[in-house]
Design a protein around this nucleic acid. Structure first.
Length: 180
DNA sequence: GCCAACGTTGGC
DNA sequence: GCCAACGTTGGC
C-alpha cells in the first residue's frame, strides 16, 4: 500500500481532539518538533497546503516507532514537511491540529495518525545533502534513521534548519525578506 | 534499477 | 525469545 503514507485523499478529517472552536491564537504552546516524510507524487507539500486550515490526517503509517512518535505529539507542535524520493528536501512547516487518533485507513485498531495543517513554506528548501553536509545536523533522524517516516527533531536542529532555510523560527516569517 | 538498511514475520 | 528469511524504504 502506501509508500510513506497512504494518500487517503478522500477521507474526512477525523474528529478527535480538534482544535478549539473558541477561536483566538494557537491554543497550545508548541513543545515538540517533528519531521513528516511524504513522497511528493503520493502527497506533496502543495497537496498539504491545498487542505488549508482543515489540514490532513497523516494516515498510512505502519511502523511502531513512527506511531509512538505521533502519539507523543501535542496540539500546536510544529513539524518539517520533507519530500522523500523526489526532491529530497525539507520544504515546509506544518502544525499538529489533532493529536493521535485511530487511523481511519486501518481496520485493525493498531495504527494511529495525527492531523497536520500547513503553516508556511521554508523559503529556501533544505536538502538532504545539506543536512548531511552540516556537522550540527549529522545526528538528525533524517540521516540516522533514514527509513523512519515520522521522526522527532531536536530543538537545536529545528532552529538550525529554519535558519538555513531562511525562516525565523520564532515568528515563522522569512528571514531577510526581499526588499522592495 | 540497484541495493543497503532495517523492520517484520515465522520457524524452532 | 532468538534469528534467518523476507519485504520495503528510499538514497544513489
Amino acid at each position: 500500500m502506501a509508500p510513506n503514507r497512504a494518500p487517503n485523499l478522500k477521507k474526512k478529517a477525523a474528529s478527535t481532539d480538534r482544535g478549539p472552536s473558541k477561536a483566538g491564537p494557537a491554543p497550545v504552546v508548541s513543545t515538540g518538533y517533528w519531521l513528516f516524510k511524504s513522497e511528493p507524487d503520493a502527497f506533496s507539500w502543495a497537496d498539504q497546503k491545498s487542505r488549508g486550515a482543515k489540514g490532513e490526517p497523516w494516515t498510512g503509517v505502519r511502523n511502531y516507532l513512527a506511531r509512538n512518535t505521533m502519539q507523543a505529539m501535542k496540539l500546536g507542535d510544529l513539524g518539517f514537511f520533507y519530500h522523500s524520493n523526489i526532491g529530497k528536501e525539507i520544504v515546509g512547516i506544518v502544525r499538529v491540529i489533532a493529536t493521535a487518533h485511530p487511523d481511519p485507513s486501518d481496520d485493525s485498531g493498531t495504527w494511529a495518525c495525527v492531523d497536520v495543517e500547513a503553516v508556511c513554506d521554508l523559503p529556501k528548501p533544505v536538502s538532504l545533502a545539506q543536512v548531511k553536509d552540516t556537522l550540527a545536523l549529522a545526528e538528525m533522524a533524517l540521516v540516522k534513521s533514514m527509513r523512519l517516516s515520522v521522526q522527532p527533531v531536536r530543538p537545536e536542529e529545528w532552529a538550525l534548519v529554519c535558519q538555513v532555510g531562511g525562516l525565523d523560527a520564532k515568528s515563522l516569517k522569512p528571514l531577510a525578506p526581499l526588499r522592495s
